[in-house]
């Protein structure tokens, strides 16, 4: 059973890696706000929003590792999941590429604050080594991918898990976290770059059309992958899940 799960997860990731390698040759695809593309004031504002989440998240991680050392491995796993998923640039039906975020799992297991730290680490790695996203836009990207997305996922998880099948709720939480990330990205670009004629709304429609539509199939993929890993966790790490309060329904 266990071995089959490991095999299934690795196989899926391998196939996805193979697929993502092809379109990657065309042009560097990235999904966050590019370096320098937010005016300094907006960049600073988003940093100010993200900062308290990071601070609370780090405090929560410290408390977690002290009080529930058995959850440490799971924390690494949630971070690793986000790492893998945000490296997978997948083609979408709109003819452009984007990638999942992988933050839904962390939100379900640890809540939005710790997720904001995990998301921040992934974003920093990609900003420093891949010119993907950026240092000046790190705050804004952290708010969309690390904070708003996970908050949405966490709320869905909290609100629905006693009412619907667990797998369905995990799917919805992860897919929504992914989708909202890019809705927020569009909003952030729109308020910083309003259309001279139509204002913020016209800009939002423009950026939204680019990001959000591409993102719908990928949000579904992310939801499915998160369900897959969550089922594997239920099988293999029931004690850790219980320690985190992710009880069996």
């Amino acid at each position: 059973m266990t071995r089959r799960h490991v095999f299934q997860v690795s196989l899926t990731l391998l196939v996805l890696l193979g697929l993502s390698a092809q379109p990657a040759l065309a042009k560097p695809p990235q999904m966050h706000i590019m370096e320098g593309f937010l005016p300094p004031l907006w960049a600073a504002l988003w940093f100010a929003v993200a900062l308290p989440f990071w601070v609370i998240g780090i405090v929560q991680i410290q408390r977690l590792t002290r009080e529930k050392p058995e959850a440490r491995l799971l924390l690494g796993l949630a971070g690793a999941f986000a790492f893998v998923l945000s490296a997978l640039k997948l083609p979408s039906v709109t003819g452009s590429c984007s990638h999942p975020t992988g933050t839904g799992l962390g939100a379900i297991l640890f809540g939005p604050f710790i997720s904001s730290v995990l998301g921040g680490i992934v974003l920093l790695f990609q900003a420093l080594l891949l010119a993907h996203g950026g240092l000046t836009t790190l705050g804004a990207n952290a708010v969309s991918m690390g904070i708003v997305g996970p908050i949405a996922g966490w709320l869905v998880w909290r609100g629905l898990r006693s009412r619907l099948n667990e797998g369905v709720v995990v799917f919805l939480a992860a897919a929504l976290a992914n989708l909202l990330t890019y809705v927020v990205t569009s909003g952030q670009l729109a308020v910083a770059h309003p259309d001279p004629a139509g204002g913020v709304a016209a800009s939002f429609a423009k950026f939204g059309a680019i990001f959000a539509l591409t993102q719908i199939p990928l949000a579904i993929s992310e939801g499915l992958l998160t369900v897959l890993i969550f089922r594997a966790l239920r099988q293999n790490a029931p004690a850790e899940l219980r320690a985190l309060g992710v009880q069996e329904a």
């Binding site: 379109p23 999904m31 706000i33 083609p91 039906v93 590429c97 984007s98 950026f207």
Partner: peptide
């Protein structure tokens, strides 16, 4: 889901969505 777009949108360039942004 990952493979279908390669066949559905054959003429597409599959650029990054943020390059378009």
């Amino acid at each position: 889901l990952a493979a279908a777009p390669l066949f559905l949108a054959r003429s597409a360039e599959f650029n990054g969505a943020d390059a378009e942004a």
